[in-house]
Design a protein around this nucleic acid. Structure first.
Lengths: 112, 112
DNA sequence: CCAATGATTCGATAAATGTAGAATTATGAA
DNA sequence: TTCATAATTCTACATTTATCGAATCATTGG
């Protein structure tokens, strides 16, 4: 994954509402969530939500499909994996995060 | 790690120069790199570099120590691990990711 | 003390980001 | 067609971010 795309993805996630949206979409899985539902759940006006969804889409983190009147957003797991891989390889000392915190274990396992 | 700090860390890394700085610091290890050397290596004016280093420090991603006239920056690995853990747990479908790549499989938790 | 070095802070400026109402587009139903 | 629904685009505005020269602060050496 090229740095430019990684930067866009990080920037896309570095915002309260967008991080919350992405978390919801990750939980929702392939089924996805309509834009309007996301707006309502987070208490954000539709036009603002649209702006944020555009940012996420532009970073490649979400995909969209139309279903009747709704436009349904889904998380792009592959893109997220790409970001995680980049960070692991370039920003974690090249250590494959073996028994350290990264892979799902609680961070204070690092209690050296 | 609380979401607010995660957002600040993501925002700190979502910038060309800062991502480059952090990568250099990760490679440098505990020894760290002086601010001036970072500025020169990346071709950024000292005042601009200072701005970016402040952002990184404010996000908790780097630490600084004075050594004679130089101020030496080092990567905070624990903070980075905290960010990775948060993303793995909240943005990768909760999959423990240790038998996939980072989180290489789409969670078909919707299988019911 | 005085000058030189390394770094930050200040100041001004340009660009990008976030917000949200109003208008517009797309779809479906009567 | 006409209306209602779902979402986006348009528009304006305030805030934040990024840049970088100039001024300032901190440290060391003469």
């Amino acid at each position: 994954m090229q740095p430019d795309l990684v930067i866009r993805a990080l920037g896309a996630l570095a915002q309260e509402h967008r991080l919350a949206v992405f978390r919801l979409l990750v939980q929702a899985g392939a089924e996805g969530i309509p834009a309007g539902v996301l707006a309502e759940r987070l208490g954000v006006p539709p036009s603002s939500m649209s702006f944020h969804l555009t940012q996420l889409a532009n970073a490649g983190l979400v995909t969209q499909r139309r279903e009747s009147r709704s436009i349904i957003y889904s998380a792009n797991y592959a893109a997220m994996n790409g970001v995680m891989s980049y960070l692991t390889e370039n920003c974690c000392g090249g250590v494959p995060c073996d028994d350290a915190a990264i892979c799902g274990l609680t961070p204070d396992r690092k209690s050296a």
